[in-house]
Write a protein that binds this DNA or RNA. Structure first.
Lengths: 215, 215, 215, 215
DNA sequence: GATGAATGAGATTTCATTCAT
DNA sequence: AATGAATGAAATCTCATTCAT
């Protein structure tokens, strides 16, 4: 997870360049498919350096992945804090919207996550996934708990199942956005902003009726 | 999609052995990660034979994948036909249950599908996915249309968005089952049957309230 | 050189089809480059048959090459016999013209010869070449002897060197024609007929002045 | 045409050893017939190294071939410059002699050229050949022009056809020498020096009478 | 600390040849 | 006589990793 000191001694811009190049390669080709050759050629640095910084391919991957996930968590934390006083479905809506924006700003990071999700040869994949799921579950669960306390949910609702359903819907929505975005070559996205908002509203509506109490 | 004559001329048991070995390898390691070397060593046949049967790696993959998808479609068709007279949410419940059973019987096939979903270097991946999505959409859409005609749905509901939401929830539920099942080493599943039924009931409940009309 | 009885028992059209397919493959890819796989696929017959007919790849090649060379010899014999009474340079001119026509009718055979000339791994290559050279030398030498007896040549001329020079010029001219013809995709040749005649006339002129006596 | 930096960074002796091994293999077996396996085994280096130096087989071939052709051109340039004041036929004689010497010093390079000439699957073969032909044509044409200006040629002679004829004779003579030399196992050549001179004299004589003006 | 040449295992693919049917 | 499935050696090429400079 942690790089050797040799990497931390690098100037910050250089660290960033290396991280970005690695993200790009891993997110496009997965762990086994990624080529350190390609990364160093792209960067114009010596192959040996990567091994000095990170020990081996796995070390590079874990570092890069970890960094990416921290960024996602930061994003979610911000949304949660900034919507503290709002109603549940408004918060869910803004979470989804934030996800779409994150996707647009860091299109590679979501695919990096997808690679981990479905590439079985990735080192520590199980640990990584468990940690992700639990983070995501905690995030939604905390929103739901707050909402329940405020009486925004139907009574007797099972928070675990509900959290699962919401997670499924939202994750799948982002998957669809990501695939659509990547398949379009990372382009012509602007016109889809409105479209995305429309879908989000519709989805949140269904969620509201499904789990919300009637007011 | 179709293998060369030379494969179809083999005895059926031999065809089956080869197909199974290929499914196992592809579903575990994805398309690029899979090794024809490993497959033939596993089978105890000569390397050249695979290429005589399928031309190249891609030919083998497409054949195997196609076969797998036909099996899934058969399964779904059967469920749809056998539940023709039932109410929508009962049909959805049985579809999910059938999915869980399919998973248990053919644990490798679902992961094969997941590999295609998220491995960008797979040949014809886009075509494959488009065809799958449209099949899945049509399946749910037809169930929804029938239900709407029968007055089982809230009025003014958007069938496209609804179909998307249902697809997301159900697909994600199966993903979760698959990952849980595989992570457990394909074992200790029996006790989970009850658990699965419980979850399915809960999920269908949420769906019912979200989109059903109140009776 | 000789095929097994099994080949000679085939119907003549079938023999011809096989021979032609083999010529095509060998003339295009050389001996080592040629693929028996490709030949049988092209023909639609079983791979085993080729080995039953000719024993191995080398057997097929030698048979095919031998046949081709017999055709060339027939062609040359005909020209020699039909021009018996003409003057040397007229005979050379007609020989060249005959060569050009042969090329147009059997474009693959000349390249087959070129492959043998420059592919070192061909079986019996040395024997084959020695036999070819000696045939060609005898052919020209006999024309030159006749011409010398008739007083058409400068006195004291060395017939061996002269034969060599003529052979070089004529062979190279045909090489140039063949390459030009093949590079043009075996097409648009008609308009070049006149051009070829022009070149032949010029070349024969130079030869005449170089070795002929002045009349 | 140019090797990657990684090859140029090698020590010169090592570069030379590799180049020579490659020339040997390609000149003996042609482009497709040559085996990188054989080259590296011969050299005692790792297979991967060749690919690090030249990218792929084609890169190695083009580099090696280009180098060889530069050597030939150097040789020809030297002859032309050193015989500037001499009469045409003396220059042709010396060109042929230089060719024979080049052959003896670099016996593999001429066969390398022959392989290119007649192996249809060589990459860029057409471009390579066109460039060679035009160089050879220019060389002879320039000699002929000079000679014409000096009044050494018959009047009204067609320089293009003449250049073709000379090229044919000389090239074929060298082919014959090369084949004879190689067939003899690169040995027992010394005694042939005199023989070669004799043939050259005879051939040049025929050329002189064929195209020279009578003095 | 940075470099990049060297390595060799392993990947896909082709092919002549054999042999049971 | 004809077939074509089976074979395995050998081809080109990629890649993570090591280590001397």
């Amino acid at each position: 997870m942690t790089p050797l000191k040799t990497f931390q001694n690098l100037s910050e811009p250089k660290q960033k360049r290396i991280t970005q190049a690695a993200v790009e390669e891993f997110s496009e080709k997965g762990f086994t498919g990624a080529s350190i050759n390609a990364i160093v050629k792209n960067l114009g640095i010596a192959k040996g350096s990567i091994f000095q910084y990170f020990g081996d391919k796995q070390g590079l991957f874990l570092f890069v992945f970890n960094q990416a996930m921290e960024m996602v968590k930061d994003y979610l934390r911000t949304v949660r804090d900034q919507t503290e006083d709002e109603e549940l479905f408004s918060r869910l809506e803004k979470t989804l919207l934030a996800g779409v924006h994150f996707l647009r700003e860091h299109p590679r990071l979501y695919t990096l996550y997808l690679k981990v999700l479905f590439e079985s040869q990735i080192p520590f994949r199980n640990k990584i996934l468990a940690s992700l799921r639990s983070y995501s579950h905690e995030y939604l669960y905390s929103l739901l708990e707050t909402a329940k306390d405020r009486g925004e949910l139907r009574e007797n609702i099972d928070l675990d199942k509900t959290s699962f359903v919401l997670d499924a819907i939202m994750d799948r929505f982002l998957q669809a956005q990501a695939i659509q975005y990547l398949d379009a070559g990372l382009g012509l996205y602007k016109t889809d902003e409105e479209n995305a908002r429309d879908w989000i509203a519709g989805i949140v509506d269904i969620m509201r009726i499904g789990i919300g109490c009637e007011k």
